[in-house]
Amino acid sequence: MIEINNLRKSFGAKVILDGVNLTVQKGKITVIIGRSGEGKSVLIKHLIGLIKPDSGEIILDGRDITSISEKDFNTVLGRFGMLFQSAALFDSMDVAGNVGFALREHTSLSEREVMDKVSEKLRRVGLTGVERMMPSELSGGMKKRVGLARAIIMDPEIVLFDEPTTGLDPVMSDSIGDLILETQRQQKTTYFVITHDITLTYKIADTIAMLHKGRIIESGTPEEMKASANPVVRQFIEGRAEGPIKVA
């Protein structure tokens, strides 16, 4: 379980996170929704240590990971996998190089064993025969799938998804949603997803939390969120321009 307590972060005078409090349940899919620029990516980057908070705690199994040493944090990192918004595949490596990267860096597996695991993970995300393709030869959806295979190659306990369907057509978005559900159910991994894709959110979420003006303003199951009386939540999930959220 991950507990985020009173997390604050500002860049210069701009306050991005203004006391975020959230509990991420183990083995469940938690989805953070919110408008672009509300700090969702900043929040997810705090979880994996890419950004340090100004104050607040992120408790992982009883330990505050924002204040541990670099060495200890490396051990914590081993428990995470992450799918980036743009997939962030290494341009200079082929698909097999990308997916097997962490295995080659952190294990003493033979090349054959690495390739076996790479093929197995690629099959799990619905790809076969792409091992020798370069990232530039892949479509947007394929890149996301390869990114997911890379994120789960070390069988992490927690996988973070930064806008997994951005830039994809609705059919491919739905297919990525299926993939997230399938891979999560297979190993009961904790998935933490940030998105503004409401269709995806309803499809995959066990818990939904809405980030607005640097705070979690409401959280609950998809049914609870659908029935929310909060006008900000209602406007966002219904996708209306009129309402308390002002479009600049």
Partner: peptide, 20 residues
Amino acid sequence: TELGTMRVTEQVDALFTMGV
């Protein structure tokens, strides 16, 4: 150019998250 591209396309962050 290579490192800059890796930085802006989050490839450097990806390395970090993979414990490298």
